[in-house]
Simulated assay, not measured.
Amino acid sequence: MLELAEELSLPLAAVKYSRGTFIFPDAQPSPHKNFADEVAFLNRYFGGLKSGGNAYVIGDPAKPGQKWHIYYATEHPEEPVVTLEMCMTGLDKKKASVFFKTSADGHTSCAKEMTKLSGISDIIPEMEICDFDFEPCGYSMNAIHGPAFSTIHVTPEDGFSYASYEVMGLNPSSFAYGDLVKRVLRCFNPSEFSVAVTIFGGRDNAKTWGKKLDADAYACSNMVEQELPSGGLLIYQSFTTTDEAATGSPRSVLHGFVGDRAEIGELDAPLCWEADAVDDETEEREVKKMKC
């Protein structure tokens, strides 16, 4: 991609890489076995941008499976853009069954049927969808409408079912934040989900859009707001079904890595991130408070 951009004399303005927590971190190819390796890899290409490479792990230590990883680097402030990303686990079995090519009664489904039966086509009806099914199960799609882009990936197998949804480039004033999230949830009925809203430009209006979320049968177990370089903002929330939601309000924690330097919360002194603090198997992160 960088080579193609260079051929067109397109300078690199900004890069963002983000993901949730892998269910099977050890099964990932390098450099995705742990976030430290991903950050080192990305810095090789983007660490020289004006902001430097900025990486964060956000989440509640009581829920190691619900963490959000984000890397961001920019040469200059971005044009206004809003991105919404959802990670959903524990999909409802009936909802997940739609994404098997052959159902229990022997009916064979194609991607277009999955798109319609699941309700994915109703999330943003105006979007033009290009969908795919996999053997024996699984689904993905890409969709566009004007400047907006959306993508979904589904792994429906019981025991480790997962779905992700992302949309970027939409006009926040055209969509009610809660309504959009609920349309996605209706397709999968997960037992847990997280939602991350990243905002650049037009922040004052979008900040309200991305913060207030009433998810009906779900309770918010964690919320973090993180400032990003060049005026960006990330709002991360995780939810569980109300019968599983923990009592009280767990303390949200944020680990921010900027190159080899780290900041935690409101600490003034810069911190060093020690490589041996990374547990590859569970992808738990600890930052040892050592003065650089």
Rank of each mutant, 00 (worst) to 15 (best):
E274F: 14
A104G: 01
P61Q: 09
R203N: 10
A40Y: 02
K67A: 06
K212Q: 10
D37M: 12
L117F: 14
D122F: 08
M127W: 07
K95H: 14
P172V: 11
K112P: 00
S30T: 14
S103P: 04
E113I: 07
E283W: 07
G232N: 06
E79P: 00
D260G: 13
Y72R: 04
S221D: 02
Y236R: 03
N205F: 12
K95S: 13
G232P: 02
S140N: 13
C110G: 11
T83M: 03
C272A: 13
H76E: 15
G169E: 05
S249A: 03
D105C: 01
C87P: 00
H69G: 00
L267K: 10
A40N: 03
E157S: 09
V39K: 08
A13F: 04
V195T: 13
V154I: 15
E166P: 00
P172I: 08
I144E: 09
G138Y: 06
W273A: 10
F35S: 08
Y45W: 14
V197L: 00
H255Y: 13
Y72N: 03
I123R: 01
L233K: 10
V154M: 04
M114K: 11
Y56C: 00
W273V: 12
T115C: 02
L213W: 05
F149A: 04
F41Y: 14
G256C: 06
E3K: 09
H69V: 01
R251H: 02
G201I: 08
V197D: 00
K289A: 12
H32T: 04
A62G: 14
A245L: 07
S230E: 15
G265W: 11
R44N: 01
S30E: 14
S230K: 08
T198R: 03
T74P: 01
E113K: 14
P229N: 01
P125Y: 06
A269S: 12
A55T: 04
G231S: 02
R203C: 08
P156G: 02
Y17H: 10
E192A: 07
E263Y: 12
V167G: 00
N43M: 03
P61M: 01
E263G: 10
D158H: 04
